[in-house]
Design a protein around this nucleic acid. Structure first.
Length: 538
RNA sequence: GCGCUCUUAGCUCAGCUGGAUAGAGCAAUGCCCUUCUAAGGCAUCGGUCACACGUUCGAAUCGUGUAGGGCGUACCA
């Protein structure tokens, strides 16, 4: 809608136009401050320019009025335009807010180490990434969601060791020293018990079999992670194992050397990548003195593989504590002969939890982590998704765990769900059938109904803007505002029994479509009915 | 020290390609159920947009500086 208006204005005014929301709804649907920017070159006052411009829109199908107020140009869309659009949306519900985009995108996110279940910090990036994924799909992009499994390196050794220590302490009853850096948590119990069934008790105390134990256990941990994710409606298209990449290492190094013979060099018995020459602070070690590759080595091979698979654009979602890592990966991508501008790294900032106003320090390796699965169980996946999707991902977020547990109006997801359920209830209570509703027109509203219609039809712009700007929170913000409009309308107008009942119901159906589509993009299912819980037993 | 980033209402956050009176939710206070679910609506309260200077007809938005917070500055991932 906005797109169409915008190009229309460009045709008439002959230049790019910034469209914004007017200060007040009564002024119009769209506004532009273009007269101000023209004022200087035309050497005329903005007021006069705006008046002149307004006059040039005298006969246009799309607008019912174009007015100049204090230098702003305000546009009011015509009833025909809005009615046609709303009817089209109801007739083509699955096409509403959809687009065609040819671009192929590879999205990598979560990629948490397979050393324990996901915690609350991971879930932010997970929700953010999955919401982007859903938006992209809806907009027609060919997008693939991928999880990079770091199943090699120190943390895997540590997993094996941690299981053994846990088992020796809690199952075999030994007195062991359990250093801070080792993993803890209930899941170790299940892994240890599983290991006994699979390998026998001996493996729990045989230090030479740690690796074997770990390699077996990581699959179990991945199952936990996959379940945590799917409980929050997050599903991946592919998993790539770090361990499977190293066979490609020699070829990738040759590839870099072919592009730039100084890309990789040897010093002090180690292999380094000359990332400083590509904007990093220092050069980085990729293979240690003992021949073990560093984490970066895996990422280099992985990114080479990504680019060889040939996408138009690559998006990585990383925790904010990895931001210093971006230059070295970019350096590697360039040494591999690819355009690092195609690689976009989005950072999901830290989540800090408060409990009754006190900071709640999270550490994955301490036992006191807040598990994603616990939160999903307590407040539901819908509320979790909504909370993370409604905050800008690149600013640190702080919230009180007690607030999260509330299931009342302070939880905006209920507010939106309730709006949708109210519409469904009215429609089911009306004596009109769907034919009578669908054949009504969306014209000739009084009161605020036309504003509600316009609001509901804004979804396509919001979806597009939310994805393009990677500002996912614009969608929940919009849905909340739309729900507010609906609730107000519901209060003001008693629909059943009015003579224009059919067209009002049709209007509500457009609102419901917008809410349902929007919620779906957030991975939340719209409810047709909500039963109020009376007495809460806690 | 250096790099990145943040600072907007009591709290959590929007707004930032410069534009009309800086917004929402929560909290607080007061109203509205003989009315399609009150999980709702209405109203009130609440702000020197961290501070200073600069650019501009115009700055929460852009630039510089200051203060304070977070993260990074690994041959950990």
């Amino acid at each position: 809608m906005k797109q169409r208006i915008s190009t229309l204005l460009q045709d008439i005014l002959g230049r790019e136009v910034v469209l914004e929301k007017p200060r007040e709804r009564s002024l119009g649907h769209f506004a532009t401050p273009i007269a101000f920017s023209l004022a200087k070159e035309l050497r005329k006052s903005p007021m006069i320019i705006a008046d002149e411009l307004a006059a040039s829109f005298s006969d246009s199908e799309e607008f019912s009025s174009v007015t100049a107020v204090k230098g702003y140009l305000n546009f009011k869309l015509s009833e025909d335009f809005l009615s046609e659009y709303g009817t089209w949306a109801l007739d083509n519900p699955t096409s509403f807010a959809r687009q065609e985009n040819k671009q192929k995108i590879l999205l990598e996110y979560v990629s948490a180490n397979p050393t324990g279940p996901l915690h609350i910090g991971h879930s932010r990036g997970a929700v953010y990434g999955n919401t982007l994924y859903r938006l992209a799909k809806h907009l027609g992009y060919d997008i693939t969601a991928e999880y990079y499994v770091n199943d090699a390196g120190n943390q895997i050794d540590l997993l094996g060791l941690s299981i053994q220590l846990y088992a020796r302490e809690n199952i075999l009853g030994e007195d062991v020293e359990y250093p801070e850096s080792y993993y803890r948590g209930e899941y170790l119990e299940d892994l240890a018990q599983g290991a006994i069934v699979k390998f026998g008790k001996e493996i729990l105390s045989d230090t030479s079999r740690q690796k074997e134990l770990a390699l077996w256990a990581k699959d179990g941990v991945m199952n936990l992670i996959v379940k945590d994710l799917s409980d929050a409606n997050i599903v991946f298209d592919a998993f790539v194992n770090e361990s499977a990449l190293y066979s490609d290492w020699d070829r990738v190094m040759e590839k870099m050397a072919l592009n730039d013979k100084n890309a990789i060099y040897e010093k002090e018995g180690k292999l380094w990548i000359a990332s400083q020459a590509k904007g990093d602070d220092n050069d980085r070690v990729v293979v240690r003195e003992d021949g073990r590759p560093t984490y970066l080595a895996g990422d280099i091979v992985y990114h080479n593989q990504k680019f060889e698979r040939g996408y138009d654009h690559y998006i990585n979602i990383w925790g904010a504590d990895h931001h210093g890592y971006i230059p070295r990966v970019n350096a590697a991508v360039e040494y591999l002969g690819y355009d690092s501008n195609k690689l976009e790294v989005l950072l999901a900032q830290m989540v800090s939890l408060l409990k009754d106003g006190e900071p709640y320090k999270m550490s994955k390796r301490a036992g006191n982590v807040i598990l994603m699965s616990d939160i999903v169980e307590e407040i539901g996946s819908d509320a979790l998704r909504f909370i993370f999707a409604s905050k800008k991902s690149d600013t640190p977020l702080e919230f009180d765990i007690e607030q999260l547990k509330k299931q009342d109006s302070s939880n905006p997801i209920f507010y939106i769900q309730y709006a949708h359920a109210r519409i469904k209830t009215i429609i089911s209570k009306s004596s009109l059938n769907s034919n009578e509703i669908n054949s009504a027109s969306l014209k000739g509203f009084d009161g605020n109904a036309d504003i509600l219609l316009f609001d509901a039809l804004l979804l396509p712009e919001v979806v597009e803007d939310a994805f393009n700007s990677r500002q996912v929170q614009k969608l929940p913000d919009y849905l909340q505002a739309l729900a507010a409009s609906l609730h107000k309308f519901y209060y003001d107008v008693r629909i059943i029994g009015r003579e224009d009942e059919a067209k009002l119901l049709k209007l509500l159906m457009v609102v419901a479509l917008s809410l349902k589509t929007g919620l779906g993009l957030l991975g939340i299912e719209a409810k047709d009915f909500m039963s109020r819980e009376t007495d809460e037993t806690d």
